[in-house]
Design a protein around this nucleic acid. Sequence first.
RNA 1: GGUCUCAUGGCCGAGCGGUUAGGCACCGGUCUGCAAAACCGUCUACAGCGGUUCGAAUCCGCUUGAGACCUCCA
Length: 487
Amino acid sequence: MKALQDQLVIYNSLKGQKEPFIPRTSGKVGMYVCGPTLYSEPHMGNMRTFINFDLIYRYLLHLGFDVKYVRNITDAGHITNSAGQEVDSIGAAAKAEQLQSLEVVYKYAVKFQELQRIYNLLPPSIEPTATQHIQEQIEIIEQIIANGYAYQVNGSVYFDTRRYMQDYHYGILSGRKVDELENETRNLNAQDEKRFFADFALWKKANPADMQIWRSPWGNGNPGWHIECTAMSTKYLGKEFDIHGGGMDLKFPHHEDEIAQSCGSFGCNPARYWMHANMLNVNGQKMSKSFGNYFLPKQILDGTTGLFDKAYSANVVRFFMMQAHYRSNLDFTQEALNAAEKGYSRLVEGIKTVQNLPASTSSFDVDSLIGSFYGAMNDDFNAPILVAQLFDAVRQINLIKDGKAHISADDQKKLQEAMEVFVYDILGLSPESPNTENRLTPVMDLVLELRQQARTNKDWTTSDQIRDGLAKAGIIVKDQKDGATWS
RNA sequence: GGUCUCAUGGCCGAGCGGUUAGGCACCGGUCUGCAAAACCGUCUACAGCGGUUCGAAUCCGCUUGAGACCUCCA
C-alpha cells in the first residue's frame, strides 16, 4: 500500500494545481473539514460536500493511511452580514422555533447524524463543536493580539488586516487583492469599529438579545465566525496538518481568514493541502437556502422534493454524485437521476454475476483493469473515471457469462474482491436491498409457480392475467432463463 | 461594478496536445409464446470566430452565454 500511497496526487487549491501528496508524517494524515452550521437541516447541496469528503476519507483509509479526520459542528451562530451587522443565525432560528439555541443545535445535530447513516458516511474521528472550545478560541485571539495582528474596540476584537499584510500574504488562497477589494466591496457602511474595511471580527461584544454569551478578557461576547475552525483544527491536529477541506463557497473569506489567523498566531499556514468541493446545482444554479432552490436529503428519499416525480434511494443519489468529480459542478436533474438508478443497478448486478463465473483462462488483463481503478482514484480522487472503469469490468463480466470472454479462477477472485472493495468500501455504496416484506415472499413464490404452470400449459391468458394483475399492484415480473423473479 | 471559473453528442458527465471515457435515452440484435427485464452492439460531440502547432475539445486572443465569489452559505 505504501507504493500506492506514493502515487496519490491531490489538487491543491492553495497552488491551483495537482501535486503529489506527501503527508507531514509518512503514513499518517490529519484532515480537517468545515462541517455544517446547525441552524437548520442540512440540504442536499450541503450533503454533497460531506459525501465527497467521505469518499476522500475512505480512499485514504483504503490506501492504508492512518487518518485523523476532524469535522466540526458550528453551534455558535455569530456571523456578519453584508451590512456588517452581526446576525445570530442560530439564535434567530431558536426564536423562530421558540427553542433555546443549543436546543436548536441538538435537534439538527440528531438529524444530521441520521443523514450520515442514511447516506453511508463514515463517522469522522471527532466532531468537535464551537461552543465546547470557547476557551481555546480566546487563547488564540490573545496570541494574535500579542503578535500585533489584532486590536480591540468597545469589547470587540478585530483582525488587523493591514498590519498582517506587512508580514504575510492576505489573499494567498483566494487570490484576492485587498486594494482591489476595497473599491469592489458593495457595502461599506456599518463598519465604524473597524480600522480597515477588510478587518474581520475575532470576538464580538455581546448584544443583549443574544441567546448565547461567553465571558472573555474583553468582556461578554461571542467568537467570530472564522476563529472556531482555527481553534479546533489546532487542538486536534496541531498547528500544521495535511489537508483542510470544505465547500468551494468557504474559500473566501472563511478559509482565507483561517490562514490569516493561523499565521497571525502561530506563524504558519495550517494546512499544506487545501481542498474545495464544488457545489450542487439545480437548474444550473447553486443550491442554497437563500435562493430557495434547495431540498432536503430526506425529501429525495420520499419523493417529496417537488422537482422529481419519483423517489430515489440514498445509494442512487450517492452513486449519482460519484459520477461527477468533486471539483466539478453537478446538475441535479430527473433524467440524470434515472440514468444513475439504472446504471447503479447494472453495476450491482455485475458484482453479483462475477461471483459465479466459469473458470478458464483470462481473455483480458485483469491486473491492468484493477490497476486502472487505482489510477483513477490516485489522480485527485477521480471517481467518475473509476466508475467508467468499473463499467468496463461489468461489460467483461457479462461477456464471460455469455461465453464470449473468459477468466481464470485466480483472476475471478481478484476482480470480485476489487469490485466489492471499490464499490462498497471506497465509493461507499451498498447492495440495494429488495426491501420487501418477508410475508410477501412465500405468496409471490406461490403466484409465480402458478403462473409458470400456466405457461408450461401454454395457457397465455392466465399467465398474462397474473402478470398484468401484479403490474397493477406495482410488482414487476421478470422472466429469466432460469425462472421468473419479481420486484 | 470587480475578481475568478466554466461552456462537451437528446440528458448527466470524464477529458489537461495525437488512442471511440462512462452511464442513461434512442436505434439494431440476442433471449422470449408475446411483452417486460437482462445482455451485446451502434450512435465519434466538444458555444462562435481567429491564431499557435505536423496535429487542438485540450494552448493563446476576441465574441457570445452561464455560474461562483466579493454578504451567511457545503
